[in-house]
Design a protein around this nucleic acid. Structure first.
Lengths: 131, 131
DNA sequence: ATAATGTGTAACCATATAGTTACATGATAT
DNA sequence: ATATCATGTAACTATATGGTTACACATTAT
């Protein structure tokens, strides 16, 4: 029963994934394991910078590493991302609701309430202060 | 056609969602819009701290705000989270593959191909080294 | 008008981040 | 053994973050 159901820290995962470079590293590893050097070569930043990102990814258990001669090969481990997926799961529902029901609301209810035509773009001048 | 398909910055979204407090705020708003004060009341940190989190969430378009008397009501806008969802989408596959197909592969295909029993742990030398 | 309420912002602080260069270490090639 | 290659770590820097307190501003209550 190859140990699964291991609990990773969602905290570490969200944090690891917050950085665009680290996400790119993961995306890269999705297409196959790579050595640290090769990975670094794919980015505009210095090699040590990538090395630090890898350390963070390692600690978040998003990658595994094993030596191979004088190389260190990194392998993707997507497991921890399930935490992120599960969190968003709660919001997936909303998209459907918002895009379907809301659209419906805007085109019918709202129009009725205001007497405006839905074609009049009722949400015009929407949110100005993005501030 | 209520403008949708608006493009939010995935960058801002991932960053906004990286903080546990902000995720909690979003989770809170999932159960209904709340005034800034009420939201702040739900957390152990100071009100200004929450105010800053709200500003960040606002800038990431994860919440909308409208005044209501002397209150400011915040409403959840899950749209930007789609970017996160889409990113993880690429990894969802892996879970299935790793846990289901691979298991299956190991127990059947592989055994058939090699004539070995699946109990022979064909994936040995798995590499555990967490660092 | 004056006080009280609800909220955002400014200024400040400590810590975390991401990047850089210099250096240490282990493995392979000569 | 010595040079070279692959890679991680240390030290340092600049900027970003998250939190705090003090204060400004608008709206409602007296």
């Amino acid at each position: 029963m190859r140990n699964r159901s291991v609990t990773y820290s969602p905290e570490a995962t969200f944090q690891a994934v917050a950085d665009p470079t680290r996400r790119a590293v993961l995306d890269l590893l999705r297409r196959g394991s790579q050595s640290a050097g090769t990975i670094a070569g794919a980015f505009p930043v210095s090699r040590p910078a990538i090395s630090k990102h890898l350390r963070l990814l390692r600690r978040a258990h998003l990658v595994r590493e094993h030596r191979e001669g004088r190389h260190r090969v990194y392998q993707l481990n997507p497991e921890p991302l399930r935490a992120v997926d599960q969190w968003i799961e709660h919001y997936r529902t909303f998209w459907t609701i918002n895009l379907t029901s809301l659209k419906n609301f805007v085109e019918t209810e709202y129009a009725a309430e205001t007497g405006k035509q839905s074609s009049a773009n009722p949400t015009a001048k929407k949110s100005k202060g993005d501030n």
